[in-house]
Amino acid sequence: MSDAIRFDHVAYRTRGFAIEGLSLAVPTGSIYGFLGPNGAGKTTSIRLMLGLLPVGAGAITVLGRKVPAELPVALAATGYVPERPHLHPFLTVAESIDLHAAFHVRFDRRWAGELIREFRLAPDRPLARLSKGEMGKLLILQALCQQPELLVLDEPTDGLDPVVRRDVLSAVVDYVAERQATVFISSHLVHELERLCDWVGVMDQGRLVTEMPMEHFKNGIKRLRLRGPTERLAEAPFAVLSRSAKEPESAVWVVDRWEARMTEWIDARGVAIDRVEDLDLEEGFVERLRARREVARA
């Protein structure tokens, strides 16, 4: 499978913030969730891939095109919904769509008309008077109707009410199902991505913490309730993200890279496993982030 987006050892430095040696690969046709706390570097990474910021070192390709050398070709097949609205506020909804269509040769005006009705947008309303939800819908509409191979969504539902959020995300899901497009979606709303994404990358403090298929991300991380001399579990075949002991001989561990056969390895060391619990994406995200920060501090 080729990569729709590829970062190779990308570095970018600005006052008070740096991205160092960022390498990531977004498989073509995937819905890639880009997670991270505020200030982790998600938006900066997106701006780098779209040529909005100059790359300090390393290389970026988008849809097989080098950025920034072949940027216009890459952008012709990329729909972008930024974190903050960026459209001309004095235009009306219809005028903004017309302007967008003028620059995108594959823009589907008929579908734009359908989405205007579906999203209940008033074509003659000036953008300056749109609510946050309406603006979010318009941004998605414009990005979808240009029929991109790649959709880059930067916090597309941040601050939207649940109804609008559902409308926006279902439009994206329908589009992906129909066109097999790639979606790169950045968000700190982890639950939202859990249902949507099949790949996940986690950023923190300008670095990629982890990147893997969503299934591995969720299944590989477990909470173990252990009883017995856990000190015998040194050199475990899994990564221990956190340990807590509420009473002697009883501990709760959160572990990564877990596989079912590892229960035997633990049993063999005289430690009983009371329970192996699944973690949802948010818990897994928080545990991985916490572990990474502890390692960084150490």
């Binding site: 779209l50 040529g51 909005l52 216009p72 070709v73 952008l75 012709a76 990329t78 972008y80 930024p82 903050r84 609205p85 960026h86 459209l87 001309h88 506020p89 004095f90 620059f103 995108h104």
Partner: peptide
Amino acid sequence: RSDRRGDFVYALTLPIE
């Protein structure tokens, strides 16, 4: 003026040189 207000993001993400 309006390009500057949007930090030139719209202009810079249009598929033209």
